[in-house]
């Protein structure tokens, strides 16, 4: 079916999310708590758009609104921009030192905050990606705790988690750099727990915790010497691709 986004018609599948249709067609809608691998949480509300359906006109989050009819979508109307600006302002007060938020502030013409209470030192905007990532891996070391304005992300009892493997996936997906990872002298510290790092079998650089290595082994069945650091993995993949091209060229 066809839907209209900002005046242009686009092809969409029944049940497809507006955001996916937009992204496919290079229409930019800002998102924060949305990643290809961890989609549709609907927490940050940055991806709001206006949907016009018959006489109804409403604001929805594009990451989780399924296309079910021939709707018209406005991704950047004045109304939306005004609300998004407010959301950015609210987020910026919670994560004032994050580069990501500074960029957004600039984009929405926001200057230094004067009226809101600004919380420094945390920079967490509770987008939920870290918890989702940890759960997707099947580790369940962290979760949201409390509710309302005291909600935060934490390990149980704010103690070093027994099950954490120190993989750092939570920090990797965090858009505001709020999860602190310290790495030095072959050690990694995250969520108050310190892990010994093992070297890459190829280049010798420390890159993985023993717990994570065991986890990857169990998941993939790879021998430890085949588990490489990201750089070496990419190089290896590059070499393989090179071989493939060579093969083609030979023929």
């Amino acid at each position: 079916m066809k839907i209209t986004i900002d005046g242009q018609k686009y092809e969409a599948q029944y049940g497809e999310y507006i955001l996916d249709v937009a992204r496919r067609n290079n229409i930019f809608i800002p998102t924060l708590c949305h990643l290809e691998a961890l989609p549709g949480q609907g927490n940050c509300r940055l991806c709001i758009v206006e949907v016009l359906e018959g006489k109804r006109r409403r604001v929805v989050v594009s990451c989780s609104y399924p296309v079910k009819g021939e709707i018209e979508v406005l991704t950047n109307s004045e109304r939306i921009r005004k609300m998004r600006k407010n959301i950015v302002r609210l987020l910026a007060a919670a994560a004032p030192d994050s580069d990501f938020m500074k960029e957004l502030q600039k984009e929405y013409g926001l200057q230094g905050e004067e009226r809101f209470q600004v919380t420094r030192g945390e920079d967490c905007i509770l987008c939920g990606l870290c918890v989702r990532a940890c759960e997707e891996l099947g580790i369940y070391a962290i979760s949201t705790v409390n509710r309302g304005i005291t909600k935060k992300v934490s390990t149980p009892f704010t103690e070093p988690s027994e099950v954490c493997i120190g993989c750092g996936a939570c920090a990797y997906v965090c858009p505001t750099g709020s999860i602190k990872v310290k790495e030095e002298g072959g050690k990694r510290e995250i969520w108050g727990k310190t892990f010994a790092l093992l070297p890459c079998p190829s280049c010798g650089k420390y890159f993985i915790t023993r717990e994570e290595l065991e986890y990857v082994q169990a998941k993939t069945g790879l021998a430890p010497e085949k588990i490489l650091c990201e750089k070496c993995r990419q190089e290896q993949a590059g070499r393989k691709m090179g071989d493939v091209f060579k093969d083609i060229a030979m023929k």
Binding site: A141, I142, R147, T155, S161, V163
Partner: peptide, 25 residues
């Protein structure tokens, strides 16, 4: 009590982080 939470965790096969999340919610 924490010891009781451990029993719950075992019985329902649910991660401690989930229990802690509920207990604080």
């Amino acid at each position: 009590p924490r010891e009781a939470l451990a029993l719950v965790q075992e019985h329902f096969a649910v991660p401690l982080s989930r229990l802690y999340s509920m207990a604080t919610f």
